[in-house]
Design a protein around this nucleic acid. Sequence first.
RNA 1: GAUGGCGUAGUUCAGCAGGUCAGAGCACCGGAUUGUCAAUCCGGAAGUCGGCGGUUCAAGCCCGCCCGUCAUCGCCA
Length: 595
Amino acid sequence: MEEAFMQRTVTCGDLRAADEGKSVILNGWVHRDRNHGALHFINLRDRYGLTQIVVDDDADENLQKAASELKLEYCIAVKGTVRRRPDDMINHDMPTGEIEVKAEKIEILSKCDVLPFMIDEENSAREDLRLRYRYLDLRTNGMQKRIALRHEIVKAIREYFYKTDFLEIETPTLIRSTPEGARDFLVPSRIYPGKFFALPQSPQLYKQLLMVSGFDKYFQIARCYRDEDPRGDRQLEFTQLDIEMSYVKRDDVLALMEDLFGSVFRSVLSIELPAHFRRLSYHDAMNTYGSDKPDLRFGIEIHDAASFASLSTFNAFTETLSEGGYVKYIVAPHKDGFDYTRKYLAELESAAKIYGAHGLAWMKAENGSISGGVSKFFQGNEAKVLEETGAKDGDVILLVAHKDWKKCCTSMGAVRSRLGADLGVIKPGYEFCWIIDFPLFEYNEDEGHWEAAHHMFSMPQAEYLDTLESDPGSVKGDLYDLVLNGYELASGSIRIHDVELQKRIFRICNIPDEVSMERFGFLLDAFRFSPPPHGGIAPGIDRLCMIIAGESSIKEVIAFPKNTAALSPMDDCPSPVDPKQLEELHISIVEDSKE
RNA sequence: GAUGGCGUAGUUCAGCAGGUCAGAGCACCGGAUUGUCAAUCCGGAAGUCGGCGGUUCAAGCCCGCCCGUCAUCGCCA
């Protein structure tokens, strides 16, 4: 049997000067231990804060002995009396810095081995080590704050919806596999040999069925799973706020999100967001910022260079233009103390090349003219270049030519991002924007057919209904993404609720009727029974928390994340399983025959 | 699948034309210490320099392959 231990009456964050004289019991971890021999200071830590414990020179033998045994991170109980610190001993950096607790009894609740890393922010350990000992990493102040922040954000979201007509409804996590889109995680069925469930990539179809059922406003904080390579802002499993509404048009969904985020930012950060977020079409976002998730905390916009690039004698420009391609430019602004060296321009070029640019041309605005780089190909047209670009002395004009519009835009977008970060022009704060009017289809070169750019259940905009089949590439959908500080925060659409239209979309995506009936028959069936028009959206909770926490990896706001190798170093999974388990599941492992 | 960065005591890092290069802080162990607050002082233990192979009189350092990890591209409707 466990012996009774001294149980806390206050936390390590509670005590103030007004508590002087109180007899208290604290539980926590030894955060720091300053032993002066007959005098001993301990910073005791729990998730509420730090409190200084003093073992005074009048301590009895037991207390002295207990104090001298203490090591970092021992879990202890302390009984003592609150006393004011002398005025010149007050620690103004600690909320509890006015007081200390004079220990009368210390009980070691459990001891701690040599730590794999220090539990503090100054000596942050490598990420693989942090993940291996995640439970210790979570003890650090930063992780404690971020996990608590996440709680506050999710709480604010739920509180917002609980004041409305929205119903929170759970949908299954063992569902039918649909091979479109991301790879599914599969779960073998023991009862039905050879058959599988999938873990949901999102509750998409279920929330649409809930609309058919008459739950006209639904939300859920849903765990989703995608078997794709993780990234800084992507994990195998992640959490999204899933929302669907009946009888709505695009702007109703957008307005709801603006209201929701306004409410969340007000309650979590005491920040007042604009009532409406800026809207950019996909086309404009790509053209101007080179991304469908532009970071609008800084300018440095991309422009079309055709008007002056066509005057140059630079083959890469003129040939690209004559082939119907694109030349775009950015004016990298002059900044005192920042040199656009050859080396730096080469770095920008390699950033552009990652996105398919063949090169990054440059020329400097100097002495009222242009010089260096490709300027020599503009002889006689220097003034025209300056006039068109508006470049001033010290600015650098950066250009990409590419026959592919998207590659031209995104490679310039990569350059823009680098410039924004390196020039330090990114304003603090939160810049939301909507990206709307996405193309509904994208051509898959490898497969040789059209695919849904977003997903197959999104409504084409009305004016394209007659040309879906004849010109899929030009069809815009009733799709919208919410972007925050360069991250895709939410993605949604007005959905199709018509069997025939849905089948047309499937066919364009190379899914014949027999196959779509087999895979999505339940949805198509449901649409036979008076589905209401509906639409929705799904903001990513992890990314929202990451951005608010000021982090660049969602691992920082997830208690037990996987690493980028899609492993959990802590519990070492995925792991092999007992052959008996496999046998029950009618599964045998086939050795990889490639090589 | 591809490209790049990183890998040196428990940990964070330093190390260099290839030759006192096996080092420092913190942690750990022993001791001292009455007002600290990242306490201080003295002493100690601790490393297959990610692995394997190569070049060389000599490799932590150079080369090749591999492994791990992070970032990015592909991928992620």
